[in-house]
Design a protein around this nucleic acid. Structure first.
Lengths: 206, 206
DNA sequence: TAGATTGTTAATCGATTAACAATC
DNA sequence: TAGATTGTTAATCGATTAACAATC
């Protein structure tokens, strides 16, 4: 019986486990139990143990998990032990804000190229090392560098077309800020970030 | 047997149904089937019918749903037929970008006050009608206007404290951009938006 | 009427939790 | 050793899907 793949919902929790462990390590905590980790994250200890068990055995009975070790294991599992160059499309207010995030500047997901269709924005310098370019040059730039991750911060009307361009350039993971559902090939992962939809679901309860 | 409350996961899908219907209405489409709506959204027709059935009967057998009618019903259910004034805390790059979103300017969630703890930012004008104020005046401003929704766009280190301040002011729903889990009273709804966690879960598959 | 599609029930599928033997 | 906590199995819970009578 082959080991079961971790469900996507489990994979999506791992970054939160990883972050909690990184914070614990910064506090010089050396060991943590599933009980404690769960309390921090609002998750049951059983769920944490079950989630981790999809990927291996990381703890010691009677003791718990070594903080630094488990953090490093999760980093390796999520491929967070390396950088992923990112291409940003859309240099409006949101794109500009994202370009200044530390994680997108020196962090794990450096934005290395920005494109926009608005000629008024071309050559604008978003950062020391980042100049807005015309979308026409996108394919070339992405292929040359082997970039696989894209962030879409364009208006809804342009999103589908731009997304197809990204996919044609070899992008396999897209973080989509445009409030529209993208239709893309199966192999491309898309995650939407939509603050309005989130707020609208919250006001239901008010 | 009392009717069952809709699960939260259903409520979270309604904004997407609502948006698709609004777009269909703009195309002057008058009627839509669960089949068609599901195809647009990448959801099964059965799921759409089941989801809607938590809230009432909105369709006609053999025909489908009247687009404008169902859109309006969903608007009423989600309380999207009114404005919700929003308070923004954090006037950095992200907060500034959010302040310029149309939906947060003239839309359903107008940001009516911005606070920041950095004196250098005080009195900065984010928009025609929006000036950054010291956090000290927050409670007063929120209570005066009866604001119930907050957006948190401050660094992780300040988030918990600021969130507690918001709750003390009567805020009941928080959209949290800080990469940290907030511990707040049960009655306060919190939704996190964390692009890094999302990207990290996607790179697992690359 | 005949064809289509809803609303709902029952079946299926998948995720979470409880419980406990293994063992540090 | 005694106490604690893991990893895993089985039980439970909840969400999705399939199917179909009702009916437009």
């Amino acid at each position: 019986m082959p080991p079961k793949d971790a469900p996507d919902i489990v994979v999506r929790r791992l970054p939160y486990y990883m972050r909690a462990l990184a914070q614990a390590a910064e506090r010089d905590q050396t060991v943590v139990s599933s009980q404690e980790l769960g309390a921090w994250l609002g998750v049951s200890p059983a769920q944490i143990r079950k989630d981790l068990s999809y990927f291996g055995e990381f703890g010691k009975q009677g003791l718990g998990y070594e903080v630094a070790y488990l953090r490093d294991q999760l980093r390796a599992i999520l491929r967070a032990d390396r950088d992923w160059q990112v291409v940003l499309v859309g240099a409006g207010a949101l794109g500009t804000a994202l370009a200044h995030y530390p994680v997108f500047t020196y962090g794990q997901f450096p934005i290395v190229a920005v494109f926009d269709n608005d000629p008024a924005k071309h050559d604008r310098r978003l950062r020391e090392d980042l100049v807005v370019q015309p979308v026409a040059g996108m394919e070339q730039a992405i292929c040359d560098r082997g970039i696989r991750v894209g962030i879409l911060a364009v208006p809804a009307g342009a999103a589908q077309e731009v997304a197809e361009g990204l996919v044609a350039c070899g992008i396999e993971a897209i973080l989509n800020y445009a409030p529209i559902r993208l239709s893309l090939p199966e192999h491309v992962r898309v995650q939407d970030i939509d603050p309005v939809a989130v707020l609208q679901s919250m006001t239901y309860y008010l």
